[in-house]
Design a protein around this nucleic acid. Sequence first.
DNA 1: TTGCAATTGTAATACTATTGCATTAATATA
DNA 2: TATATTAATGCAATAGTATTACAATTGCAA
Lengths: 141, 141
Amino acid sequence: MNTTSSIAHLLKAQGLRDTQPRRMVMQALIHIQSPASPYDIQKWITAQENTINTVTVYRVLEVFESLGLVHRHPSSGLYFPCSIPEIKGHHGFLHCTKCHLVEEFHNPELCVIENAIAKKAGFKAKNHLSEIVGVCKGCVL
Amino acid sequence: MNTTSSIAHLLKAQGLRDTQPRRMVMQALIHIQSPASPYDIQKWITAQENTINTVTVYRVLEVFESLGLVHRHPSSGLYFPCSIPEIKGHHGFLHCTKCHLVEEFHNPELCVIENAIAKKAGFKAKNHLSEIVGVCKGCVL
DNA sequence: TTGCAATTGTAATACTATTGCATTAATATA
DNA sequence: TATATTAATGCAATAGTATTACAATTGCAA
Ligand SMILES: [Mn+2]
Ligand SMILES: [Mn+2]
Ligand SMILES: [Zn+2]
Ligand SMILES: [Zn+2]
C-alpha cells in the first residue's frame, strides 16, 4: 500500500536511510496521481513550501525504482508509484493516452508466452516489458 | 528489405520526397547495425565525408518512424531499422544487453492475450509494446 | 551525545530536443 | 531542358533533461 511507515521499513531493511527527501518524493508521486518527471516532482514539493534539489529527486527515484516502489514509464520516461509491489515479477502497464492514467497488471500467461518467444530466438530472457496503449474506461465517451 | 529504391517508392507513394539526407540516414541505420541516437547517426554520416544537420536527422527519423521503416527503442530512445516492415501490426523486440542487438518478432498469440488484458480492464487498446530484455544466442558464453 | 558514513546540496557541464525563419533542392510541368 | 513551386533542409538560438565531482549536512548506531 506504500504507507510512509512501510516505506521506512523497506528502506531500513535494505540498509538505506529513511530521509525527508525520500519521504517528500514518495508523497509527491502519490498525490500527483499521473506519471511525473523529476522536475514535475520537484515542482510539486516546492508548491508544498518545501525544497529539494533536482539531483536529489533523480537519485531518490533511482533508489525507489531499484526497490520496485516506482516504475519509469518506458516511452515517456515519467515515474509513478507501483500499485502492486507485493506481486513480484513482471508488471505490465495499461496506459491511457487521454488522462495519462497508468494501471498495472500482472499476467503470468503473458510471461509464459514471452519466455517461449525468447527461447525460440535463442535468447536468455532476464526481464520483459509490456505496455498497452489505449483509452481507459473513464475516457471512452 | 529496405533497399534504397523501395524506400524511394514508399516515400513517393506518400507524397514525400526522396532526398539525399533521407537516403543518408537510412544508410547509416543499416550500417551501424545496433540502435543509434540521432547524434550517432550524424557522426556516422560525417565519417563518410558527408554532412547533415542534427535537426534534419531528428526530422528524418520522425518521418521514417511514422512510415514504419524504423523503430524507436522505448527505454533507450535509440533508433533502428524495422526488419519486418512487410508484417503489419504489432512488432515486439528482443534486446540483448551485451551486444545491443535488437531482434524483432511478430507474435499473434501475444496480441490476443494483450487485447484480452485490455478488455478485462475496460481499456480500448490502440497499440501495444513488448520488449524482452536478455542475452542473445551469440552472447551467452 | 557524539562520530561517521550515507545522503543531500551546489555548481558546473554535457547531452538531448525543439523552434522560427532563411535557404536549398526535389519534382512537376511547360 | 528550363523554370516554378514548395517540401525539405540548414542555421542559430534556446529550452529541457541528465550527470558529475566535491562540499555540506543529516540519519542513526554506538
Ligand atoms: Mn509494479
Ligand atoms: Mn518492425
Ligand atoms: Zn483515461
Ligand atoms: Zn548479444
